[in-house]
Every structure is written in C-alpha cells, then in structure tokens.
Simulated scan of single mutants.
Amino acid sequence: MKKIKIKENPKTSSCIGYIYYLVLRLWAARFLDDMVDQWTPLQKEIISGLTAGSITTLVVHPLDLLKVRLQLSATNAQKVHYGPSTVIQEIVRSSVSNRHRTLNVVNELYRGLTINLCGNAIAWGVYFGLYGVTKELIYKLVAGPEQSQLKGASNDHKMNSLIYLSAGAASGSMTAILTNPIWVIKTRIMSTSKGAEGSYTSIYNGVQRLLRTEGIRGLWKGLVPALFGVSQGALYFTVYDTLKQKRLRRKDENGQNSHLTTLETIEITSLGKMISVTMVYPFQLLKSNLQSFKANEQNFRLLPLIRLIVANDGFVGLYKGLSANLVRAIPSTCITFCVYENLKHRL
C-alpha cells in the first residue's frame, strides 16, 4: 500500500503555532493574575525588591568593581592618586593579550557578578520585606491598633519621618547581619583579577578557604562599620519616603493619579541617595578594607585602620572613591526604585 505523505503548508503551520502561542499566553496571564490576587503586601514587597535588585546589579556591576578597588587603595600609600582610569588600565593589562582580549576585559569587569547578583537580590528582597513590616509595627505601637488598618501598605500616608528613619535603621541592621558573609566573599573576589596569585577562583573556593584560614568569624569581618553604614539606608529611606508622601498628597489634593511617575521617582531617588551616601561614605570604605585579603594579612582593626588611612592621605582618604560611588549609586538606585515602584504598583 502506497504511503500518502501529507505536505505541510508553512503558512498553516505558522498560523497553528501562533494560535498555540496565544492560548499559552492567555493561560499564563490568567494563572499569574490569579497568583497576583493571592499575594500579600509583604510578598509583593519582597518580589519587587528581588526583581529591582537583580536588574540593577546586572546594569551597574562594573562600576561596583571600580568602587571596591578604589576603596581598597586607601590603605596603600603608593596609591594616593589612584583613580578609575588606573583601575581600568590594570584590568586591561591583566587580560590575556590575544584575539579574545576584549572578551577577557569584559569578563574582568564582570568578575564577581554571580555573588554580587545573589547578594543584592537577597539583600534588597530582605530589606524591602523587613522595611514594610517594621514601619507598620512601629506605626501600630505609636498610633495604637484603633488607628491602623488591616493591610500593611495602607498606613503609609499617615507615617512621619521618624517612623521611616526607625524602620530603615532596624531593617537595615538585620539585613547587614544576615548578608555580611556574602559581602566578605564578594569584596575579595572583586578586589583581584582572576589570574592573580591567591585570588578566589569561585564562591565555593572562597568560602572553603576563608573558613579554613580564618574560621567562622571571618564571614562577619567588617560588620561593625557595616552596621554604622546602615544609617545610609535609614537616611535614604527617610528622605525618599518623606518626599514621596508629600508628592502623593499634593497629587491627591489636585485630583491626579496617586502614583509616582518614573521621572518623579528618579528626582526623589537621586536627591535622597546623594545626601545619604555622602554623609556615611567612610563607613563603606572601612567595611571594604576590613573585608579584604590585606585585612587578614595585616590583621586590620577599626581604629588602627582609620589612623593608617588618615596618615596616608589625610581625612580626604576616608572619601576615596566617593565620586565613583555616586556615579554607581545614583543611577543604580534610580533603576532599583523605578522597577520597584512600577512593579509593586502593577502587582
């Protein structure tokens, strides 16, 4: 019996494929809508924070690497005039000189991306989640249960700057303690090129070597300045939420949509970040230096470290890399909060 071969029409095939695509998309949209309806305000805060932190890290990671290496140069008297261009020249020189040189430079600029991505995603998710819960708890303690409403986010418009400051400090401290081991490994990976002698070859290799040579306490190096540095987040959220609520009240009085536009979010974020980063930047610099390879080799302690930096470059040395940090911090925070605000609004 002759086998009949059915010739498939490409147009018919593509049409059927498109129909399947539409059905799948509608099913997925309905499934996600059902899930979104069941999400609590806390879950929305965490999901928005995780997404925002991940996207931001992917975009600004090379700037973060420049910032870390500039901060670590503060303890080296021979690197007083060490700047971003010098760091880039070192990265280019450390890359193998062959036909893949450009790719190697890119790889070096994104060295430590995995742990930075995980760390920032976890840190932002934890921070936003804790911040949302903490400010509600503080508000209920201050105002009393009769003044508060059932849903977490609904009390924001009644809060003041002191509540935002307290919630930011509390949630920041808890986040710093929980995520400090990630930042120790991240700092050490990003402080050296991949081919440098003694550098960590992977996250697992870094954790293994650190525990073997420094013990479990090594994972919490730099925690003291990190906790002081929490004031940066607390100050930022105080400025951000205070200006945000003022802007929303003004829009509500004028009968406008009670949601920040992307431009308004960028304006408020930039101002808040510039103020908060500049005020507490020395704590970031001290934390990075206490978490470095050199800290273990020379047994750095907080007060002797401050004296060493001041002796090398004066009090200005405590602000080494500030300009690079602002260039990194302001756009990264704008991206984070634009994604966060828009995603939370849509969820």
Rank of each mutant, 00 (worst) to 15 (best):
K5N: 02
K7G: 01
S14Y: 09
G17A: 14
V23P: 09
D33Q: 12
V36F: 04
L42C: 08
T51A: 13
I55L: 07
T56Q: 11
L65T: 00
L65G: 00
L72T: 03
L72C: 07
N76S: 12
A77M: 09
V80P: 04
Y82P: 00
T86D: 11
R93I: 05
S95W: 01
N107G: 02
Y110D: 04
G119A: 14
I122P: 03
L130M: 12
G132V: 07
E136P: 03
H157N: 13
S161Y: 13
I163W: 11
A176Q: 02
P181S: 04
I189D: 01
M190R: 01
M190G: 01
Y200P: 01
Y204I: 03
N205S: 08
G206W: 04
V207H: 08
T213L: 14
K221L: 09
L235A: 14
L235N: 10
F237Y: 14
T242P: 11
Q245S: 13
R249N: 07
K251W: 07
E253T: 06
E253W: 06
E267D: 10
V277L: 02
V280K: 06
V280C: 14
Y281M: 10
P282I: 05
F283S: 13
K287T: 11
K287L: 12
L290Y: 08
F293W: 10
K294C: 10
A295W: 06
Q298D: 13
N299T: 12
N299Y: 10
L303P: 01
A311I: 05
V316L: 15
G321Y: 03
R328P: 04
R328C: 13
C334E: 03
I335P: 02
F337S: 04
C338T: 15
C338Q: 09
V339M: 04
V339F: 09
N342H: 13
R346N: 06
L347N: 02
